[in-house]
Nucleic acid binder design. Structure first.
Lengths: 111, 111
DNA sequence: TTCCTTAATCGTATATTTGCGATATAATAT
DNA sequence: ATATTATATCGCAAATATACGATTAAGGAA
């Protein structure tokens, strides 16, 4: 591949793609569900619920955090993760904007 | 990795993740925009618009097609692609359902 | 038929993702 | 001080994704 062409696209396209990538794995969707379900910020409970190793869950959490969808603070021996609702809302809006803008252009089937 | 654990999650989670993966690349988002803009089903016009080689665009189109977001028919020497609005609507709904279901659980910040 | 155009596919190189075990880290409990 | 507990991180292996040039295939034009 050698060169990535992501930078050749608009910032909006890149941002939206990055968000989509963050939720482009069933494990991460499942993690978000668990985080939303528990009001308390949880951590290793996810490991018990998901069929994944602790290190793998930690990695998925890191990616969600990098994408900004999840906030995390370290509380001594245990950490605390929770959904960043602001970022989530922002991306939800961005998605709906894409969907809507695509649809308003044209909705006729042609193939 | 050796083993993929996708199958360990619910079908809904897998489907949504697959859709997210399809739009998890700025080039594919850009392709969808082009497809939506032109009422006519186009093909190699995308190659001229995007800064990507013909084979790369073809590959991205294939992935969008595999995800069901795009329909394609071969019309002689030129092919014809267009957005599958039904599938698109379906996934848009699935997304909003996820967003909503997460939010109704709880929207308090905790970290 | 032979050439041209269009697009799919093949082969290849490289980058990224996914997953796990093992190890490191850091606060708490004993 | 040492052990325990919870997480992050490292190192590794395998699978996927990204990108491109070259080739193939197939209809249309000469």
């Amino acid at each position: 591949m050698a060169v990535h062409k992501k930078e050749a696209f608009t910032q909006k396209e890149q941002d939206l793609a990055a968000f989509a990538k963050a939720i482009a794995h069933p494990a991460r969707i499942a993690i978000l569900k668990v985080l939303a379900q528990r009001n308390e910020c949880i951590c290793g409970e996810i490991v018990e619920i998901l069929p994944l190793a602790q290190s793998t869950v930690s990695q998925h959490l890191k990616e969600l955090k990098n994408a900004g969808l999840v906030d995390g603070t370290i509380d001594g021996p245990r950490s605390c993760y929770c959904i960043n609702w602001n970022a989530f809302e922002k991306f939800n809006t961005a998605f709906n904007t894409l969907f809507t803008s695509l649809k308003t252009k044209n909705e006729k089937a042609c193939c």
